[in-house]
């Protein structure tokens, strides 16, 4: 098991007007899953992803990644843990505007103090795998939305994380770009056994996912594994 959550509860504004975003979510995710977390707006999808990714803290409950409890980790240790274990793909791509595609992909590896040779080799492999080997020296402003999101996927994969969390990764993409991106992610999942967890509204993502977890009012309403 790669991810396990135990009774995750998240209450926003506990001292003012409390909003219960998550109500005791218990979840296990195995290595190599291709899972979509779906649900209406405000159901707690992004909050759950943020807590699993160590970007936010649960009010109650625990998150175990590869058996390690990240809920009480000190800030610096948690940043290091995220850097080495979790890849993020955001809805708005969030590439660093002053860096080229190659530099963006290699950035986290640079933070990991990997050698230049190792970085260059892996970055090139990753950009080839997302079909952007001809855009290595382009800055984000010179790339389309779909291309930027593919660079973001390559960036998330670069540090060889345990899994990738993708928050509404197709929300800003057209159909062609969405299909391209999903093809790439599905291939990486099948060939490299990379675990992907999406939060999404997009039916095309839901259709490609092998497991669909539906959240309603901060609780798991259904957990469906496709055959």
């Amino acid at each position: 098991m790669i991810i396990q959550t135990k009774g995750i509860t998240k209450i926003y504004n506990p001292n003012k007007i409390p909003v219960n975003a998550l109500n005791g979510v218990d979840l296990q995710i195995e290595e190599g899953e291709f899972t979509a977390i779906v649900g209406p707006s405000g159901s707690g999808k992004t909050t759950l992803l943020n807590i699993i990714g160590g970007l936010d803290q649960a009010t109650q409950g625990e998150v175990l990644i590869k058996g390690e409890n990240i809920s009480k980790m000190p800030d610096n240790q948690l940043i290091d843990f995220r850097k080495n274990n979790i890849g993020f793909v955001f809805q708005a791509y969030n590439l660093i505007p002053v860096l080229t595609a190659k530099e963006n992909v290699g950035f986290v590896m640079l933070l990991q103090n990997r050698s230049k040779e190792e970085r260059d080799q892996r970055v090139l492999e990753l950009l080839q795998s997302v079909g952007l080997e001809d855009k290595v020296n382009k800055r984000p402003s010179e790339l389309s939305g779909g291309q930027q999101q593919r660079v973001a996927v390559a960036r998330a994969l670069a540090p060889k994380p345990a899994f990738i969390l993708a928050d509404e990764p197709t929300a800003n993409l057209d159909s062609v770009s969405t299909n391209n991106l999903l093809d790439i992610m599905a291939r990486l999942n099948e060939e490299e056994k990379m675990t992907f967890i999406f939060s999404t509204h997009d039916q095309r993502v839901i259709d490609r996912a092998r497991r669909v977890i539906t959240l309603v009012d901060g609780k798991i309403a259904s957990d469906q594994v496709k055959s």
């Binding site: 610096n76 940043i79 080495n84 955001f90 969030n94 660093i96 505007p97 986290v108 960036r155 540090p159």
Partner: peptide
């Protein structure tokens, strides 16, 4: 601010 958030999210230490 948004960019700072992203950079810390992907593993850049606050000090750096």
């Amino acid at each position: 601010e948004y960019e700072f958030g992203v950079l810390t999210a992907i593993g850049m230490k606050r000090r750096s």
